[in-house]
């Protein structure tokens, strides 16, 4: 007869891996249509399926990739793309700082390799699991490592199908970015402070765009929004809780 496992018993890998697969499955399903859209919009911007695939493999950060595509012109504005990517992905720094101390059974190499796959979704799942039990490499690599299959696969499919779709504005697909970003912004909504940030960013970005043209509207809008959030937040509160 098997004795029930004590809470401190070594956790077995297959069970950890299965839990990771179970947790990430719905996210993989949700990511596929977004990846298809990303691939199709890449084709609309003149990127080849190989280039779209490379971006999804190497950058693997949806928000930053969509922003880069929206800013994409020929010749390619490399500095603008890198700046936008850095700003959008800066949140990873806080996410990593919050998650890393919970990865006690990971070697430094496993952390460095594992964080290549850090996304909002895998981070949220791992934080949730860490509240109940120790985080294992088997769980993390299943949760975080499987998501690229869905993202990259759907990117390539979208890039190949997208080149047959023709002019995207005919079916309103050129507006899909804008609508997608509005949906993504809603995920960061936290009331008054985010309202101030969103309003200031929108006003400053549109004004600078009309006055000076791209790419300065991104930096001006982002800095205005960040300043507005700083001003709108109550001074002296101690919300030390990691993001």
């Amino acid at each position: 007869m098997n004795k029930p496992l004590a809470p401190s018993a070594p956790l077995d890998m297959p069970r950890e891996r299965a839990a990771g697969v179970r947790d990430i499955m719905p996210v993989m399903v949700a990511a596929a249509p977004i990846g298809l859209l990303f691939g199709a919009l890449c084709a609309g911007k003149g990127l080849s399926p190989a280039e779209a695939c490379l971006m999804s493999v190497l950058v693997f950060a949806g928000g930053a990739q969509f922003a880069a595509l929206e800013l994409w012109t020929w010749p390619v504005p490399v500095a603008t793309l890198v700046f936008s990517t850095l700003l959008i992905n800066a949140r990873h720094i806080l996410m990593g700082a919050s998650l890393a101390p919970k990865m006690r059974s990971f070697s430094l190499g496993q952390k460095l390799a594992g964080f290549y796959f850090l996304t909002d979704e895998s981070w949220a799942l791992a934080e949730r699991r860490a509240k109940e039990q120790p985080l294992t490499p088997a769980y993390w690599f299943a949760v975080a490592g499987l998501l690229p299959l869905s993202w990259v696969g759907s990117t390539v499919a979208g890039a190949i199908l997208g080149s047959f779709l023709g002019d995207p504005s005919r079916i309103g697909a050129d507006f899909a970015f804008t609508a997608l970003f509005i949906g993504l912004v809603a995920g960061f909504w936290n009331g008054r402070v985010s309202a101030a940030a969103i309003g200031a960013s929108a006003a400053a970005s549109a004004a600078i765009y009309l006055a000076f043209g791209p790419p300065w509207h991104v930096a001006a809008g982002a800095l205005s929004g960040i300043a507005a959030a700083y001003v709108a937040a109550p001074a002296g509160t101690n919300a030390a809780e990691a993001a």
């Binding site: 929206e70 959008i88 960013s201 765009y209 991104v218 809008g221 700083y230």
Partner: peptide, 18 residues
């Protein structure tokens, strides 16, 4: 609060012209 506002501020700035 300022750090948390970075992602929405950037996303809004990118789409505001459209």
């Amino acid at each position: 609060a300022a750090f948390d506002a970075i992602p929405p501020a950037v996303l809004v700035s990118v789409i505001a012209p459209t």
